[in-house]
Design a binder for these strands. Structure first.
Length: 418
DNA sequence: TCTGGGGTCCTAGGACCC
DNA sequence: TCTGGGGTCCTAGGACCC
C-alpha cells in the first residue's frame, strides 16, 4: 500500500505563505526570464490560465483580473520543500522524496484500518508546521496512489482519498491522467480504443509491451493492482545540466563565453556538493526557435575527459574551447548551457594507465577548490569566482517580480509592523 | 517585444566479440 | 550459387516526469 503526498499548487502556495494578504487571490509563478506560467493558484486556474502558457499571452487577462505575478524563487521553494519533507520523514519511516513537491510513503506495515486516519493527521501536521496545503492519495500501487491523489485534488477536493474498493472511478477518468501516459502515448492508446484508466488497466499486457515498452506494460499492471514499483532509494545523480535563456539575444562570442562560464560554475557547485567527478561534458548554444524570420543555429559539442575531474578551471576552459568551435558569427543566440555527464563518485575513480595524473597538481587543485567552496559558503555565492564570469551581464534574464528569500537570507527576512 | 529548466528510463541499431 | 548463432556495449533519439 502506498500513499502519495502532493503539495497543492506548490510554488503559488509558497508565495502566499509570506503574503497572507493574497489569500483567495489569483497568483501566478513564472519561469526563468518571466517567460511561461509554471504555477497557478486555484483562483488563477479558474480564470482559464493554462499551465506552461507564455506569460505575454495572458498578461492583459492578468491585468484585468488583478492576478498577482511572481518571478520564480527557487531558493524559497527549495527551502520550504525541505521543511515539508522533513515533517513527512519524521512522521513515517518509509518515504521516498519523488519531486520538489511530492513524496511517496509505503504504508504496508500499518494496519489497513488506520491508513486514512494516519494520512489525515499527516496532512494536518504538514499544514500546521509548514503552512503548505497538501492532498494525499492512497492505493495498492504507486500508480494507483497517483490516481487517488488526482481524485482527491481535482475531483473531490478533499485532503485524503483512498481508491481501494472505489474502482468505479477508473471508468470515469481519461487515460491521459495516468502517471506515465503522456501526449504521444495518449494518441496511440486512443487509436487502440483505450480511452479510460479502466480500459488501460484491462488491456492485454503483452500487447502493450510489444507495441510500446515494458514501462507501459508495468503502468497497466499497476493500475490493475499488481505492484511493479517499490519505494526508490535515492541514488547519485547521473547528470547535471545548467542552462538559461538570455534576457536579450546575443551575437558576440565574448558574451556567450561569459554565459557558458557562469553555467560551468553553477553545475560545478552541484557537482561538488554531491562529491562527484565529470567524465563527459557537453556545451551547447541555441538560437530563438520561435523566430522563423531569423536563421537558426543549434549545436552541441562533446568532450570525454581522460581523467575525471571537478576542477572548475579545467571544466570552464574546456567549455570555452568547445564554444569557440561551435560559435558562428552572425546568429542571434537565445540560450547556452553545459551538461556534465557520466559522473563518478570522487571516492571510486578509475585511473587511466597511460595518463596518470600528477599527484602534486591534484593535491594542489583540491586545496584550491576546497578554499573556493569554503569562501563562497561563508560569504555568499558570488564572493569568489573565475574571471571568465561576469556578475553583471547585459544579457541577464528578467526576474523583476521575485519575492524575497524569506527563509534563507538574513537581509530578506519578513518584517512585521506592530 | 515577449515563448523555462532539469531530470530519468527504454529501445533500436550499429559495432564489436567468439 | 551457397554464407550461423549467440552475445555485449554504446549511442542517439524519443518518451516520460515535475
Amino acid at each position: 500500500m502506498f500513499a502519495l503526498v502532493d503539495c497543492n499548487n506548490f510554488y503559488a502556495s509558497c508565495e502566499r505563505l509570506f503574503r497572507p494578504d493574497l489569500h483567495n487571490k489569483p497568483i501566478l509563478v513564472l519561469s526563468n526570464n518571466d517567460g511561461c506560467v509554471i504555477a497557478r493558484s486555484n483562483e488563477a486556474k479558474a480564470l482559464g490560465i493554462g499551465m506552461g502558457e507564455p506569460y505575454f499571452k495572458v498578461k492583459s487577462l492578468c491585468n484585468q483580473y488583478q492576478v498577482h505575478i511572481f518571478s520564480s524563487n527557487f531558493m524559497l521553494y527549495g527551502d520550504l520543500s525541505a521543511r515539508v519533507m522533513s515533517v513527512i520523514e519524521d512522521s513515517w519511516p518509509h518515504c521516498e522524496i519523488y519531486s520538489i513537491d511530492e513524496a511517496f510513503i509505503d504504508l504496508s506495515t500499518l494496519p489497513v484500518a488506520q491508513h486514512e486516519v494516519f494520512c489525515e493527521q499527516l496532512q494536518k501536521r504538514i499544514l500546521k508546521e509548514t503552512g503548505i496545503p497538501t492532498s494525499i492519495g492512497i492505493g495498492r500501487t504507486k500508480t494507483l496512489a497517483k490516481i487517488a491523489n488526482f481524485i482527491a485534488k481535482k475531483e473531490l477536493k478533499t485532503p485524503v482519498f483512498n481508491i481501494c474498493n472505489q474502482f468505479e472511478w477508473l471508468n470515469r477518468l481519461p487515460v491521459n491522467e495516468v502517471w506515465g501516459i503522456g501526449r504521444q502515448l495518449h494518441r496511440h492508446l486512443l487509436h487502440m480504443g483505450i480511452y479510460t484508466v479502466a480500459d488501460l488497466a484491462a488491456a492485454d499486457k503483452q500487447l502493450l509491451k510489444n507495441k510500446f515498452s515494458v514501462v507501459v506494460m508495468r503502468t497497466a499492471m499497476e493500475l490493475a493492482g499488481i505492484p511493479c514499483n517499490g519505494l526508490d532509494v535515492r541514488e547519485a545523480r547521473k547528470s547535471i545540466l545548467a542552462s538559461r535563456s538570455f534576457g536579450t539575444m546575443i551575437t558576440e562570442f565574448s558574451e556567450l563565453s561569459e554565459a557558458v562560464s557562469m553555467h560551468c560554475a553553477r553545475a560545478y557547485e552541484k557537482l561538488r556538493s554531491e562529491k562527484q567527478l565529470v567524465r563527459h561534458m557537453q556545451v551547447f548554444v541555441r538560437t530563438n526557435r520561435f523566430r522563423d524570420d531569423l536563421a537558426q543555429h543549434n549545436v552541441t559539442m562533446d568532450f570525454n575527459l581522460i581523467n575525471p575531474t571537478d576542477d572548475l578551471r579545467c571544466l570552464t576552459s574546456l567549455a570555452k574551447q568547445g564554444l569557440k568551435k561551435i560559435f558562428k558569427q552572425g546568429y542571434y543566440y537565445k540560450k547556452a548551457g553545459v551538461c556534465f555527464n557520466d559522473l563518478i563518485s570522487r571516492d571510486s575513480v578509475q585511473l587511466d594507465l597511460f595518463n596518470q595524473p600528477d599527484e602534486e597538481k591534484l593535491a594542489h587543485k583540491d586545496r584550491l577548490m576546497n578554499a573556493m567552496d569554503a569562501i563562497n559558503q561563508r560569504y555568499g555565492r558570488k564572493a569568489i569566482a573565475l574571471a571568465a564570469q561576469n556578475f553583471n551581464p547585459r544579457w541577464a534574464a528578467h526576474s523583476d517580480l521575485r519575492s524575497p528569500c524569506y527563509t534563507t537570507r538574513w537581509s530578506e527576512l519578513a518584517l512585521i509592523n506592530t
